[in-house]
Computed example of a mutant assay.
Amino acid sequence: MIMKQVDLTLPESGPYSVLADEILRVAREAERRTLGLESFGILKAYGIPVVKTVIAKTEEEAFRVAEEIGYPLVMKVVSLQISHKSDVGGIRLSLQDGGEVRAAYREMMEKVHEKRPDASLEGVQLQQMLSGGKEVIIGMIRDPTFGPMLMFGLGGVYVEILKDVQFAIAPVDEEEARGMVTGIKTYPILAGVRGAKPSDIDALVDTVLRVSRLVCDFPEIEEFEINPMMVFEEGKGALAVDMRLTLKKT
């Protein structure tokens, strides 16, 4: 596969960082250290494509949003206290119509509350149902000695089972970012094996570079994770599906 040079189109300074700073400022003023999908605007500000996502706080709102986005849909519970949504019944896939959306909302609220009565449930997130891609994870943890440590690997449940990830200290250049992507042992899955078409490696390299810039621009971000990011066939890009970040204690 021919590797293209990635053009990171972010200027040295500009409105992208201003928008991200505003989102983080609001979080700090509200004394919130952990942010989830409500901070998708940070990714958008840094030019990282995200799946169409809307948060609904009631059953009726979920129905209206679903009709606007279109079907099929994914529904996920929104709660700062719940990281692994599938463990508590907080994910429903392939919802096909408004009736399924209403039923799923009621069942999800009941089941999640039963399993996590301590958690504050803020509603649900509705997303386009994506297909045909592969899941990867792009993250960062800020080491007290080395600074922001970037991470890349296969996403979803694979990162926990296979533990096949690559690390690098940010900031990284294009060569280092590409080395992270191609350096995992399971890279052949992304490159295309047994006749499968290769994934859009350039889109992943571009995202790693943008995340590198983001976490260097904002040292108050202690941990950061896009998981999963769905990468499609070569030339068709990648979309962030879920994210989470933690701010340093003040």
Rank of each mutant, 00 (worst) to 15 (best):
P188L: 12
D87L: 10
M75E: 09
G139F: 12
H84E: 03
Q5N: 14
G192Q: 10
A103V: 07
K163N: 13
V157F: 04
G89L: 11
L204M: 10
E135I: 01
V159M: 06
N227D: 08
G183P: 09
V18N: 03
F63I: 13
G132N: 11
T53E: 10
P198D: 06
S79C: 05
H113K: 15
R64D: 14
G70E: 13
P219M: 07
D21E: 12
K134N: 02
G235C: 08
G14R: 14
L73I: 12
E60N: 10
E31P: 03
P49E: 04
I42C: 06
L19S: 09
L93Q: 12
P11A: 04
L239R: 11
G90F: 02
A56G: 06
A177P: 11
K85N: 13
T145Y: 09
L43T: 03
F63N: 03
L37C: 07
E107P: 01
R33A: 11
V205E: 13
V193F: 14
D118I: 00
P11D: 03
F218D: 05
E160Y: 02
R116G: 04
L209R: 07
Q81S: 13
V54W: 01
K236S: 12
E60L: 03
R64Y: 10
F40G: 02
D242W: 00
E135L: 06
S13A: 06
K248D: 13
M75W: 04
D21N: 14
F167W: 15
E135S: 02
V165L: 10
D202Q: 13
R25H: 12
E67G: 06
T9K: 13
V88D: 05
V18H: 07
M230V: 15
A203D: 09
A240W: 00
E222Q: 11
A66K: 01
K52P: 04
E223W: 10
D242G: 00
V74K: 11
Y46T: 12
V54K: 06
E220R: 07
Y46P: 11
Q125D: 00
E67W: 00
K248L: 05
